[in-house]
Design a protein around this nucleic acid. Structure first.
Lengths: 256, 256
DNA sequence: CGTTGTATGATGGAATACCAAAAAACGGAA
DNA sequence: TTCCGTTTTTTGGTATTCCATCATACAACG
């Protein structure tokens, strides 16, 4: 009775230790994704030290990490700058998303467990609520939850991180697009249809619906972007200035 | 006469690795991919300093970078170790490759320029030669060139890096599989068929052939792996020991 | 003999000071 | 204005130091 083995690993201690580096990394990454640090912004190491309150050692490590993740670019001896997303980048991202989210939907339809489907359902319900309330931010959170459930249901933890980073890269574009009530509602409807296909274990339909959904998102996003941008075909797709130097040649925009 | 532009980039100095960090990064990454550092190997920072001849700062930077790329894992308070590729990881990678290489083939068939097709042709010819000579290493080099041309032809620089890293992750599995002459020859034939479809601008066939090719590669690789592995279904797919500690519990294997 | 407490060494996390090299900014001369 | 050299800023990189934590060995104790 009461021997330790019977407990299994239920009381295994949580070994996660939020290091300074991880906290700083998260803050900086969020600032980049959220747009507080605009694309093209020069990231001066010592300035970041002050901003984040950590040493240069830590700053340099997280800069390398963000570089590997593609959020910043780092020409040697020139210093890191926030990466830009060109119109062509956006196209590639949408095309990749179409293929991978189609795959995820197909696999999810065949493999998803009831718990996964429940999560999908909750996410869709949450989205509908958020749209009804006009809360874009909440809508996006539920979208993320939806895709997380979708990739989990498909048994693809690897794809999850990759797709999430791609979606983040289009964050600006997406929030513009979803702030139009019509597009937001349409997006929810399409996801709900996808969910229905998954419930019916109809993998072919699920794949097709997911692909169509990405295509529609793309058209909506690039369509709205074109309304803002003066030269829609050539310019960065409303995401970032592809040639920031062209306008004010003197001082590059810097952090802080 | 003799103006600088006429020289083109013929005498462009090799700026590929100007910084120590990049050189060290490349060396370490190669060592991981090549298997000189087996999965599960503990990477002790101070040891790596000696090995690479750089300071701890640089070592830590490249460790963070490799961590972001997924080549190493870094459990808190334990220190970085070379990542393992489980059988489930391998499955996910193959499924992702199937979707993305199918996409690349489809787009390449519609978008490829003559120069791209030439590169594909050269790569296939090179592969055939290498297989005839029984040179697995050369074969793999041409495979990489083939996929590079394919993704370029599809206009997908982003996908290129991602797919390349996935292929690298299966490097061991692949070299085992391709050292069987039968599979090697079959692989070339399948790629040649894909090339023909691209030449004919038959995007649907190209996609299907690319997907089939990945599926066949997968079956071949996992099939051969099963011949070696004692418990094929559960064990890491011949790629790495998923539980390296199980055998010799005393000292963990360390670098050098 | 087995259990428990403690000393110790190895290692990662982090800060700091320092120097070299490259690039950018600046300022003066033609 | 444009060109050229100088100064300043910033990154690349090293060395050193300190601390927290962990794993192990070992001693003490029942």
């Amino acid at each position: 009775m009461g021997d330790l083995e019977s407990l299994g690993s239920s009381l295994a201690v949580d070994r996660s230790a939020p290091t300074l580096r991880e906290q700083a990394l998260e803050k900086l990454r969020k600032a980049v994704i959220g747009g507080e640090l605009a694309p093209g912004t020069r990231l001066v190491e010592r300035r970041l030290c002050d901003l984040l309150g950590v040493s240069r050692t830590v700053v340099r490590e997280i800069l390398r990490q963000l570089e590997a993740e593609g959020w910043i670019v780092n020409p040697p001896y020139k210093g890191p700058t926030v990466a830009t997303v060109s119109a062509d980048d956006a196209r590639q991202i949408y095309e990749i998303r179409e293929a991978l989210e189609g795959l995820a939907a197909r696999l999810c339809a065949t493999r998803a467990k009831p718990a996964d489907i429940k999560r999908l359902q909750d996410a869709v319900d949450g989205m509908a609520e958020a749209v009804a309330a006009g809360d874009v931010e909440q809508h996006i959170l539920h979208i993320e939850a939806f895709y997380e459930a979708l990739t989990d249901g498909a048994g693809h933890r690897m794809m999850q991180a990759y797709l999430a980073s791609h979606r983040s890269r289009l964050a600006r574009l997406r929030s513009i697009s979803l702030s139009r009530p019509q597009r937001a509602g349409r997006s929810v409807i399409e996801k709900r249809r996808l969910l229905e296909a998954v419930k019916l274990r109809d993998s072919a339909s699920a794949q097709r619906l997911a692909e169509d959904h990405v295509r529609n998102s793309r058209e909506a996003a690039l369509g709205t972007a074109e309304q803002d941008a003066p030269t829609p075909s050539n310019a960065a797709a409303g995401v970032s200035p592809s040639t920031p130097a062209a306008s004010s040649p003197r001082r590059r925009s810097g952090v802080a």
